[in-house]
Amino acid sequence: MTKNATFERPQTGQSASLELTHALTQTVYREARMLDDENYVGWVKMLADDLLYHMPGIETRYRRDKTDQVNDLTRMAYYNDNLEEIKKRLSRLETGTAWSEDPATRYTHIITNVEVEMTEKEGEYQVFSNFYAYRNRNEREEDSLIGNRVDIWREAGAAFQLVKRRIILKHNVLLSKNLNIFL
């Protein structure tokens, strides 16, 4: 619902200190572990109230086509959620009647290529990462979702909260029957 919001924070391009880089790397690893464990109560605590969680849908176009399919938040997206909407998704699971989630999907999120940069805003950091999310269900259903993420994380007491996330999935045709997963 966050239409016309701008995703980017003004960047300084300056990389963060070793200590900060370590702290944020640990943060995205911890987040991945919570998603693997379906610990959504813990995960939601890592999300800021003004969250924008965005995964644009990207068509195959020729290079000469300059349509901005990534930054334009008014275009089609697979996820374009604020915190309320994320909670709605989770509430479906909590009903106990989301039959297609039982038996549970087995998830592994592998997070790599973490880079942390300062932004112009005090206490907010840009974090680049790549993900490999593997899902397995029932006997032999499996699929892999691979892509890049650009996040903004904000200091919140001793920890950090996710303010913005852009997910670039590399699929054109989604080669699996749903996206019942947070990346």
Binding site: M76, E85, W99, K177, N180
Partner: peptide, 30 residues
Amino acid sequence: DEMQAAILDNQCLTFGLAGLFDNDDGDNLA
């Protein structure tokens, strides 16, 4: 315009690839 935007956006939550309804249907039909 705002209503058109809201309609496009609602797909995220309902019948898009990550939509809550599509999650159920795909599983049963397969």
